[in-house]
Design a protein around this nucleic acid. Structure first.
Ligand SMILES: [Zn+2]
Ligand SMILES: [Zn+2]
Ligand SMILES: [Zn+2]
Ligand SMILES: [Zn+2]
Ligand SMILES: [Zn+2]
Ligand SMILES: [Zn+2]
Length: 778
DNA sequence: GAGTTTGAAACT
DNA sequence: CAGTTTCAAACTC
């Protein structure tokens, strides 16, 4: 048994020849061995098998073999339900891409994962089934289509490269897994400890997968599966290699995410790098958006999805993120729309798979995965889908788990993917613009339209870095920092942050990450919180977000983009060391703040403060309202300590990751973004604070994702980028504060946890090799 | 677009 | 960990 796995792994790098086809037999057998009856039943479901098989047959075979391997592994370890899923995934994957590697990995993971899940199995299966049947069929087609597309579009050369990449990726994945195993806590343990959580996770995953299926088609499903699988795989691997111990540590979730990322990333890269990119990317993005929108509805994917395999994967990734957005959207609903197209669409479409919808956002967001997951769960919950419901619980759990366990896993993932994604981002950027636009035009109706899309902006908007001495291999470079490769819009000199220098980029990234694990973690953490429950106000809960590391502003009073907090659209937290903080999104020491702030302003700092104040006021004058709001808010601000919250917020972490990836910011607000932001902000305002917070939050995420530019969240709003944007500020501010307070409580901390998670995740993701490093930390 | 300001990143 | 230098973005003009 083990031997097979090992062999499998070994073989991984090259492509393995698995032989068997993954046929149902394997699965069944597997199931039996596993014991998971319930699961088995689910998996067993003929439907799936049939579908899978059919799919598999269609697609690839090599993959299947892999599946077999997986199966075997699984059997060894036990697993079950998942296996079936995994199988599907594989099948899908295979078909979809050559990425079979990834698939393989996944399969492995799946095996592992499944077992633990046992309990969860039920849900999963159910979900699975629900989704799968219909979807499956469709997906298959989709897959085939994609293949065609790829072939057509991609030149042979590209294909070749891709393959190579894939292989490498595979390796990486493995390595990652390995690492994870080593570093990570064992799934088992977790399971035991958190049995519930674990289960939840699993279930969640399943749910997600299902959702994907429905919405996205097979591809998505495949992706999801892969993800799930990946997670499980990690265990397996660890077990196999290291033995149980490893598995114990690792978090399945984490592993999986990481993998997922990688896979996704890998694809993206390939596509991006090789293919082309933009067009496809754009398409993808669009598709994604569409999907997202549709997702809810369940849709479409096939066609759209087909277009780009990549897209699919991304979508998968997005999922998580999507969840986020979704949730928010849903909750907030309309208001959100303004944010991004997505929202609008979602609102329109939402129905079914709300969670998915968001995915597009996520997609851009990059880092969102983790968060997305969490959100997803919520979303799902919110969502009507049965799956969702089922998932919901699990989702939450997942979040917790992630946070707790894995933070690492989740986080890292993004990092790894980051680079890859980055490329995506570029596309995204543009896309981002379009997102709204495209979607709007075509799909949605939406709402808001986002504006113009493109019009404008996009083009310009997407400026990127203009590095001269860093070669774009240091954090000075926004592209690099965001985990993206430099692209056309960049005006950098001596740039090495390009796909062709992938090795260098990854190695450099690892180094930096090694020094500072949080380096690529999302800067801003958000909590979504769900709000749900929280409810303090009826409205919603706010979401809080804060800059992980806090700023150290001295002269900007945190009122300009010089301040990372402000730029990120979040208020300053206790982590900030700013002087004279006037961050419109919330000042530091809020709680204390009211009094303190006043004190400070008038008293101590008067000096600098005064000046600043004056300046601010001046601006304020312009914006006077804003300031006022802010002030008001300030008092409100509660005293939370973020710290406590933060750590915890593992879930947040996830998001951040994505966010981290952020954008290359590039885009300025200019057209699109600005409009967006403004809209968003407006919306927010109108809505109200509590929501506002969320909305803002959402905005941020999306923005980030979407546009690189937005980074600041646009918030900033100011289209020109000039400094202040009063109105916006005001709007945003209010939300923040309100949200901030509440949110803060929850989210704030993200920092550490995120970092940890992120790091780990990123490491893993990022590069295989690099990843390894990452694992350790968390 | 050039030049200044700014605070993070990098370095010591 | 603090202090300094380097850096590129944010901002100004
Ligand atoms: Zn650069
Ligand atoms: Zn660049
Ligand atoms: Zn560059
Ligand atoms: Zn600041
Ligand atoms: Zn700050
Ligand atoms: Zn501040």
């Amino acid at each position: 048994q083990d031997s097979p796995l090992f062999s499998f792994i070994n073989s991984l790098s090259p492509i393995e020849p698995l032989k068997s086809a993954y046929s149902g037999n394997g699965l069944q057998a597997y199931h039996q061995s596993l014991n998971v009856t319930s699961v088995s039943s689910i998996f067993t479901s003929p439907h799936h098998n049939a579908h899978k098989e059919s799919k598999l047959s269609k697609s690839s075979f090599a993959d299947y073999t892999e599946n077999e391997l997986c199966m075997e592994d699984g059997t060894d370890k036990n697993k079950s339900p998942t296996s079936s899923t995994a199988v599907r995934l594989f099948a899908c994957t295979s078909t979809i891409t050559r990425e079979s590697h990834t698939m393989i990995t996944c399969s492995v993971n799946e095996g592992i994962v499944d077992p633990p899940k046992g309990p969860n199995d039920f849900p999963q299966p159910g979900r699975f089934d629900s989704g799968s049947p219909d979807h499956n069929t469709a997906p298959c087609h989709g897959v085939s289509v994609r293949s065609d597309l790829k072939q057509d579009k991609c030149p042979k050369l590209e294909t070749v490269q891709t393959t190579n990449n894939t292989v490498e990726k595979r390796k990486c994945l493995f390595s990652s897994d390995m690492q994870l195993q080593d570093g990570c806590q064992p799934a088992k343990e977790n399971n035991e400890v958190m049995g519930c959580e674990w289960e939840d996770l699993v279930s969640v995953t399943s749910g997600e997968l299902l959702a994907f299926d429905s919405s996205m088609d097979q591809h998505h499903t495949g992706v999801q599966l892969a993800v799930n699988n990946a997670e499980s795989c990690g265990y397996l691997l660890s077990k196999l290699a290291g033995g149980a111990d490893i598995s114990d540590r690792t978090h399945p979730a984490t592993s999986s995410q990481a993998y997922y990322h990688e896979m996704v990333v890998g694809e993206d890269k390939t596509e991006n790098g090789q293919l082309f990119p933009e067009d496809k990317k754009t398409i993808l993005s669009e598709e994604i958006q569409d999907n997202i929108n549709e997702e809810n509805a369940c849709i479409p994917l096939g066609c759209k999805v087909e277009t780009q395999q990549r897209g699919v994967r991304r979508r998968c990734l997005v999922f998580e993120a999507a969840g986020y957005s979704h949730r928010t959207v849903q909750k907030e609903s309309v208001g959100d729309l303004s944010f991004s197209t997505c929202k609008g669409k979602s609102s329109a479409q939402n129905h079914r798979n709300p969670g998915k919808t968001p995915s597009p956002h996520v997609f851009r967001g990059i880092g969102l995965h983790l968060n997305a997951l969490a959100l997803t769960s919520k979303d799902k919950m919110a969502c009507q889908d049965p799956l969702a419901t089922a998932l919901v619980p699990s989702l939450k759990t997942e979040q917790d788990v992630h946070g707790n366990l894995l933070s690492a896993g989740g986080n890292f993932v993004h990092s790894g993917s980051g680079l890859l994604d980055l490329q995506m981002d570029n596309d995204d950027c543009s896309v981002g613009g379009f997102l709204g636009n495209d979607h709007n035009s075509s799909q949605s109706s939406s709402p808001p339209k986002k504006r113009r899309k493109s019009d404008n902006g996009d083009d310009d908007s997407c400026k990127r870095c203009s590095c001269k001495k860093s070669k774009c291999l240091k954090l000075y470079c926004e592209c690099f920092a965001a985990g993206v490769y430099c692209s056309e819009p960049c005006s950098c000199q001596g740039c090495l942050n390009k796909p062709i220098h992938e090795e260098i980029v990854l190695s450099t990234r690892k180094q930096i990450e090694f020094r500072n694990p949080l380096a690529f973690a999302p800067k801003v953490i958000r909590m979504s919180e769900a709000g749900q429950e929280t409810q303090e106000d009826p409205k919603n809960t706010p979401a809080s977000a804060r800059h992980k590391r806090g700023c150290n502003c001295k002269k900007s009073s945190c009122l300009k983009k010089y301040c990372e907090c402000y730029q990120g659209g979040v208020g300053c937290s206790n982590n900030c060391r700013c002087e004279t903080c006037k961050n419109t999104f919330g000042t530091r020491d809020v709680a204390v703040s009211a009094e303190n702030e006043e004190m400070k302003q008038e008293g101590d700092q008067t000096e600098s403060c005064e000046k600043e104040k004056e300046n601010d006021q001046q601006k304020a004058n312009v914006h006077s309202e804003d300031h006022k709001l802010v002030e008001l808010v300030v008092p409100i601000t509660p005293p939370l300590d973020v710290s406590s919250c933060t750590m915890f917020s593992s879930s947040l972490l996830k998001q951040p990751n994505f966010s981290n990836a952020k954008p290359p910011r590039p885009c300025k607000a200019r057209s699109g973004s600005s409009s967006r932001s403004s809209k968003a902000s407006e919306t927010v305002q109108s809505r109200k604070i509590s929501k506002v917070g969320d909305s803002v939050f959402i905005e941020e995420m999306p923005d980030i994702l979407r546009e690189p530019s937005s980074p600041g969240i646009v918030k900033t709003c100011s289209p020109n980028g000039k400094r202040v944007s009063p109105p916006h500020n005001a709007l945003s501010i209010s939300p923040n504060r309100k949200g901030g307070r509440k949110l803060i409580l929850k989210s704030i901390p993200s920092f550490p946890s995120l970092a940890g998670d992120t790091n780990g995740g990123s490491a893993i993701c990022s590069s295989d090799s690099a990843t390894a490093l990452a694992l350790g930390p968390s």
